[in-house]
Design a protein around this nucleic acid. Structure first.
Lengths: 125, 125
DNA sequence: CGGCAAGATTGATGGATGTCGATATGTGCA
DNA sequence: TGCACATATCGACATCCATCAATCTTGCCG
């Protein structure tokens, strides 16, 4: 957990520097992205930052029926069932996948527009 | 490093299962994304999967001159200089930032079209 | 009711990652 | 030449994360 320091001392320090050095070091005021916003958006990219999760997304997306159950996804990846279940949970929590349990099986599908919204996060940086 | 297994045994196993169980577990053949492609694309998202790196990108993008030097970026984040330097290096290696050294200072700028290309990775999943 | 099968959860473990302090490198300037 | 400054690199440390084996939960069907 990083501590974000923002107080009067730091502000005055920045003002001081900008008068002393004219060629560089004119801090871009506040970051365009707040610490909270950044943390929020990073969660989505964290979910996308694993090769096996990207492959899971691509498989769910490629499926004709629009949904896949865990047993469909386990073997092609060469991962154990608990690991796949773990990755799918992360993708659901990131808002990228939707989970629906029917009987014994759990069906996963892409949340409509989720990938486009994730792409939009980059454009809105 | 995960090991991706792909051999005749697995293929025949899949065919077997599809004849035994008709309701579920029809593996989506090969993952739409190969292990190598997935690893490559994950590198970009790994670079984006940190709040402070997102803030760095936003600050560089927001700067009027289009470039920022390290000293501009260190204080607003509340991180040490080595840490910021480390994050910037990761963003450069991911192909998102460009680094140009002029005199004592190092100027970082957005690689044109890099964010759009990253967004395109999602659409192309 | 009892067993079986699918999937989720837990606990453990090795490896990756963010952060810092200290130091190295390289540049401008007196 | 020598000092001061900006940045990069190194080493260490704590934390996070991907993975697996084992177990738990839940629904299906005999």
């Amino acid at each position: 957990m990083s501590i974000y320091v923002h107080n009067g001392f730091m502000d005055s320090l920045q003002i001081l520097q900008s008068t002393v050095d004219a060629t560089c070091c004119v801090p871009s005021a506040e970051p365009a992205l707040s610490a909270e916003e950044a943390q929020q958006k990073a969660l989505v990219f964290k979910a996308l930052a694993d090769p096996n999760r990207l492959r899971l997304l691509s498989m769910v997306k490629a499926d004709e029926s629009g949904e896949s159950c865990v047993c469909d996804l386990t073997e092609p990846l060469g991962l154990g069932q608990p690991t796949v279940s773990h990755h799918l949970k992360i993708l659901v929590e990131a808002g990228l996948l939707h989970r629906e349990k029917r009987g014994t099986w759990a069906y996963y599908s892409l949340v409509p527009g989720a990938l486009e919204r994730a792409a939009g996060l980059l454009a809105a940086l």
